[in-house]
Computed example of a mutant assay.
Amino acid sequence: MSFETHPVTPDRFDDFADVVNPNRRSSHCWCVTHRLRQADINELGDGDREQAMRALCEQEYPPGVITYRDSEPVGWCNIGPRTDIPKLTHSALITPIDDVPVWSIICIVVRSGHRRQGVTEHLINGAVDYAAENGAPAVEAYPVDPPGRMDLTMAFVGTRGMFERAGFTVVGTTKAKASRMPRLVMRRDLSTKR
């Protein structure tokens, strides 16, 4: 079994869609919610979210990575410079903890039928490698720390444990909550990775 992770460039868009929206529903978020201002999303309506994501894939830093297992797309991680993510740059709940120009992980999706099989570890590490290759000094994530079994809706933000296994440490907390659970600020320093 082999894993590979690649940025979601235009030629990989259908692989991304197979993970996040296999039925190609126009009303699905297409993972653009954090990447566009609310006014832009409202203006787009449901039908053009796919086109908005396609345009994001053509930017200098595509908006995330796709992990493949044996050439099949099985996971998606939305990651990029925090400054390129309007929902974070304008957030009063998830504020920067310092001046480090971090890259941020804002969403993780493992394709149905491939969960609980080690995909997340490869996905997060591939996202970190992508950030490091593009000069990021650190990567942050904003997961929850559930007291028991995780609610499946939390898979999009992740849990403390999945990021600890990928070398992240807790560096703070946010004012944001997910299903009434506080969200942490976890960071992986990349200064030693280069």
Rank of each mutant, 00 (worst) to 15 (best):
S2T: 06
E4K: 12
P7C: 02
P10A: 11
P10I: 09
F13S: 00
D14Y: 05
D18S: 12
D18E: 15
N21I: 14
N21K: 06
P22F: 02
R24M: 15
H28S: 14
W30A: 08
C31M: 08
T33I: 04
H34I: 00
H34Y: 15
R35Q: 13
L36E: 13
L44P: 05
G45D: 07
D46Q: 11
E50S: 06
A55G: 00
A55N: 14
Q59D: 03
E60S: 13
Y61R: 14
V65A: 03
I66L: 08
Y68L: 10
E72C: 02
E72Y: 01
P73W: 09
P73Y: 03
V74K: 08
V74P: 12
V74T: 11
K87Q: 13
S91L: 02
L93S: 14
I94K: 10
P96F: 02
W103L: 08
S104W: 06
I106N: 11
R111Q: 14
R111A: 08
S112Y: 08
S112D: 13
G113N: 11
R115A: 11
R116A: 07
R116K: 10
V119Y: 02
H122Y: 13
D129V: 04
D129I: 01
E133K: 06
N134Y: 06
N134V: 07
G135F: 04
A136C: 06
E140D: 15
D145G: 10
P146T: 05
G148D: 15
M150Y: 09
D151L: 10
F156A: 12
F163T: 05
R165N: 12
F168D: 05
V170K: 12
T174S: 05
A176E: 14
A178M: 09
A178G: 00
R183Q: 15
L184Y: 10
V185Y: 12
L190Y: 12
L190R: 07
S191T: 12
